[in-house]
């Protein structure tokens, strides 16, 4: 059988279509959860669990009143700011710890200690240090997620294949190419899962910190809903957070994960690439 020209591009396009189509399967699962939610509403009433439709309508009304988008942007800014700082600091310190045994001995216990401090304690401390501002929120995100990135980065650097590096040097591979084609792909297979975990966590920590600090954003909306004992609005905000998280996971992280794992899919004798979907 002849292989037509452009097979690779076609294959990519088909894989992308398969992936997008896989959204239906995810939607089926989520809609069943909504059915369970509706049953819970029927059993316990609006005060405990508002109906899904009321929550969606409330979210819609709040969006139309222009209250959701600013909150989402503020929360995203807080979360991404903290996450970016954590990725940078955790990544660099982790790489140092991976490359040097001394640095590892120095930094590893500190990272372990930081991981052990509950996020809620950090919220309290950063509120005392920075007051109820976005900075307090971003700082909380930074200190809770940096140790995760640190661990991934350290592991990635520590397990670099020395033989591969020596071979690259023997062939006089230019340094940028060495970093780009040898170090980076290997590092990413450790670093990316850590980054993905950190990013998802940063959103949750942000909402929590916002709720306690009153620093605006989605958390503030939740706090207001709590004060007003407005379960419908609270649920609407929860729906918004969940939507953000799902969008992040399925539109950003999962496609990257798939892209990074091409080598797994295209190994000779491996399963064909048609097992797409979420």
């Amino acid at each position: 059988m002849t292989i037509p020209i452009g097979t690779a591009a076609r294959g990519r396009a088909l894989r992308a279509l398969d992936y997008i189509w896989g959204g239906w399967g995810a939607a089926a699962s989520l809609l069943l959860l909504v059915a369970l939610w509706e049953a819970g509403h029927a059993a316990y009433g609006t005060l405990v669990l508002p109906s899904p439709r009321d929550s969606f309508v409330a979210l819609w009304t709040m969006s139309a009143a222009g209250r959701v988008l600013p909150a989402v942007l503020e929360t995203s800014a807080n979360a991404l700011g903290g996450f970016a700082a954590a990725a940078l600091i955790g990544g660099i310190l982790g790489a140092m710890a991976g490359a040097s045994d001394m640095m590892r001995r120095l930094l590893q216990p500190i990272a372990t200690l930081m991981l052990g401090i509950p996020a809620i304690a950090w919220v309290v401390l950063s509120l005392l240090w920075f007051g109820g501002t976005g900075l307090a929120v971003s700082f909380t995100v930074l200190v809770t997620t940096a140790p995760i990135v640190f661990a991934g980065s350290a592991q990635g650097v520590r397990t670099l294949d020395g033989a591969l590096r020596r071979m690259a040097q023997a062939f006089r591979i230019p340094r940028p190419a060495l970093v780009w084609d040898v170090y980076l792909p290997h590092m990413l297979s450790y670093l990316f899962p850590a980054l993905a975990t950190a990013l998802a966590l940063s959103w949750k920590v942000t909402v929590m910190a916002e709720l306690l600090s009153g620093a605006g954003g989605i958390g503030d909306g939740l706090a207001t809903a709590r004060v007003q004992v407005d379960t419908v609005k609270a649920m609407a905000w929860v729906v918004m957070v969940v939507t953000l998280l799902l969008a992040l996971e399925y539109l950003l992280l999962e496609p990257i994960r798939r892209h990074l794992q091409i080598w797994r899919r295209e190994m000779p004798g491996g399963p064909p690439s048609s097992s797409g979907g979420f």
């Binding site: 896989g22 239906w24 939607a27 809609l31």
Partner: peptide, 12 residues
């Protein structure tokens, strides 16, 4: 909601 979920599973 279950009908909608079933519809999505068929589309999947």
């Amino acid at each position: 909601w279950i009908a909608l979920a079933a519809a999505c599973a068929q589309a999947d």
